[in-house]
Each structure stands twice: as C-alpha cells, then as structure tokens.
Nucleic acid binder design. Structure first.
Lengths: 196, 196
DNA sequence: TTACTTTACGGAACATTGTTCCGGTTAACA
DNA sequence: TGTTAACCGGAACAATGTTCCGTAAAGTAA
C-alpha cells in the first residue's frame, strides 16, 4: 500500500528516485484540481498536462485511473473510517452513531464530484477503488450495524456491503438535478431498518 | 413521438420511405440483441454491423444513443406505466399496489442490462431516455403515492421523482455482484415510507 | 569530479469509439 | 419511364485510452 510521504518506495522495497517522487506529487495535486472541475472521468491527458508531465509518467505511477482516484481521496476515506468507532463512543445510542456515520459517508460521496458514480461503474473499471473503499469502510459499517442490532434498535440481518453500496448508489447524480436529494432517501432507508 | 408500426412518419408528417422503415426495424432488432449481450453502452459500430447498415444510417434514425434505447424499451416502459392503475384496482390496499408496482419497475431495470446505469449516467448523455422515462412513469408513481398517503398507509410528502430516481439508482450494478440485491434495499426503502 | 548503471521521463504511435459529411443510389410519384 | 427528393454506405475526422522506446537524469563508486 503506497504512502504519500517521503518514505514511499513505489512498491519495490527500494527508495524512490527524487524526480519520481516529485512527479508523483505533482500528479496528485493536478488530479485533485482536475477532479473538482471535471469529475473523476476527466481525460488523462489533461491531468498529465496540468502536472507538466508526459503520458508515460502518469501511467507508470498510476496504472489505472482508479489508482489515481484512490490516492487522491485516501485521506478522506481514512477519516471516514476512523469516525465510525468515535461516533459509537460519542453518541448516545448505536443507531444515532450509525445515522451520523452514514451522513458523513454520504457527504464524502456527494461532495467529491463523480466519486459515487465511479464507485459502482459498469464492468470493472475502478476495481481498485472499489476494493479499497470496501476494505476500509465495510468493517466500520459492520460494527455499527452489529451494535445497533444488539441494542435492539434495528432488525438484524442487514449486510454491511449491501448497505454501503446502496447508499453509494443513491448518491449518484445528485449534482445535476436539484430535485434529487440523496439524503432524504437515505433517511428513509435508515428508517426502514428500525425495529418496529 | 415515433412509433414502431407502419404508420411511422419519421417526425416529418410525411410517410417514411420503405427502405427507411426496413432499416429502422433492422436496427431496432439488432440493438435489442446487442444490448442483451453487451449492455446499452455497446459500440454503435457493432449495432450497425449486426443490422447490416452503415454508420450514417444509424445516426440518421437515432441521433443519440438514448433515442435508440428508448425505442428498444418503449414497449416495456409502456407496460409498466399501464400496470400502475391496474394494480391499484386489483390489490387490497394502495400500499400493496405501490409495492407491487415498484417491484415491476425494479424488474424492468434489473432485467435489462445497463438500463439502470444509463438512466442516471453522468452529465446529460441519455437525456431523452431520462425524459421519456419520467414523462411516462412519474405520474403513475405520483398516483400510487397519493393513494397510499390518503389511505394513511405512508406518510405524505415523498416526491415521486425522487423515489423513482432512487430506485433506479439502487438497481445499478446488480449484475456484476451476487452480494448485492437491490430488491432488499428497495424493500427497506418502502418500509421507511410507512406511517408509524 | 567523472564514468557507469539504473531508473524514470516524454511524447510519438497505435487502438478504439463517437460523429460528421458527401457522392452515389433508390424509392416514390407524376 | 423520367425526375426528384430522400436515403444509404462508409470514408474521414476527432477525442481519448494505452503502449513503447530512445533519451535524459539520478544515483553510485572509483
């Protein structure tokens, strides 16, 4: 798993060359800028151009688009994952923690243009992004669901994966349509979870 | 609004030439076949080739991909729209009718590969598809929701558009992942609608 | 510092797909 | 049957993803 600080080894176990690390950072910065303006489907060429590097360089550092997206959003994903247990400790009930965390998760998807859309995508583009998201967030969702179920606040049996994916899906396309607010539907979904 | 039978006028008010109608039918058949195998994002070239016509022909008949998708699925959309009022008459309660209709709607999206995905899409590709879907199905959803709300079975205030879009979103990507079954989440959503 | 090795860089070249355009063909009709 | 308007096919162009290799730079040791 690559890191973003000076210790990055490029996966080879050897230290990265200085220019390589410089370019990687330039690429991450450029990608973050372009993603905001044009979504995560922006042309690779534009990102390379904005970073001032060639096509070969971007493909060497990030073989797939998903690798680049993961690298750009790693921080936010990490924060979201860490918030789960914290909410469980802070909130009065497991269900309240679950609701708050789901809200944070939805914010992440809604704020970053096209991220939700990329997460499911067709076929298996973005498979690495999908995998990273799940590895990191599914256990968190599972723990919140379990806690709420044990407390008797929701009925048991909900699959964490399915819930995450469903919420992710609901967040798609909110930004080109003011009539559609994913949060209302997410609230309905949570309501449907509650024990009668 | 184009039709598929012999009366098609191509929108000009004049009768279509025989070869034009023949090609349109060949294209519809080919598109339906290709969509099943490769989803609605299959290359235009392949559809044209399967129909045995040139690129110009397909673009003349269906200027955008969405036009072609609409034409292919018109029948199913129409059936779904007509089922709404029928369910309302047949079922014991408005909510039961709503639930049954939502199931039919979901089946439509789940069965036709990639249709759900195309429905929201990014930017505004598929805008005609989106528009047709809404024009036809939103009033049906509205009537079902109103009836259920009036009967006191669900709480009022749910936007038909939002519900349709949400269900559409939930149906995305079910086919490349056995762990994800949109129907379970849709059931939760409906449960969340119910009056306490 | 210099010579040498290893790694990375840049961008041309190729592949795929969407989209447009135009010369030739054909159906419709008098 | 001749005229005309509509239609056809596919070449040509454009945008983008992906690969490859000659060249340049960084690291290393004498």
């Amino acid at each position: 798993m690559p890191t973003t600080d000076g210790s990055d080894t490029g996966g080879t176990g050897r230290r990265m060359r200085a220019d390589a690390r410089r370019n990687q950072e330039k690429l991450l910065a450029a990608a973050a800028e372009v993603f905001v303006g044009s979504g995560v489907d922006a042309p690779i060429r534009r990102i390379a151009a904005r970073a001032g590097v060639g096509m070969g360089t971007i493909y060497r550092h990030f073989p797939t688009r998903a690798d680049l997206v993961v690298a750009v959003f790693r921080h936010q994903i990490e924060e979201c994952a860490e918030a789960g247990p914290r909410f469980l400790a802070e909130e009065g009930s497991p269900f309240a923690a679950l609701r708050r965390w789901v809200g944070l998760f939805a914010d992440l998807l809604v704020t970053k243009h096209g991220l939700a859309h990329a997460l499911q995508s067709d076929s298996s583009r973005f498979a690495p992004l999908h995998a990273y998201f799940l590895d990191r967030l599914q256990p968190v969702a599972a723990r919140l669901l379990d806690a709420a179920a044990e407390a008797g606040e929701i009925r048991p049996g909900t699959h964490p994966y399915e819930l995450l994916r469903g919420i992710g899906n609901l967040c798609i396309g909110h930004d080109d349509d003011p009539r559609y607010d994913p949060r209302r539907l997410i609230a309905l979904l949570l309501q449907g979870l509650r024990r009668p």
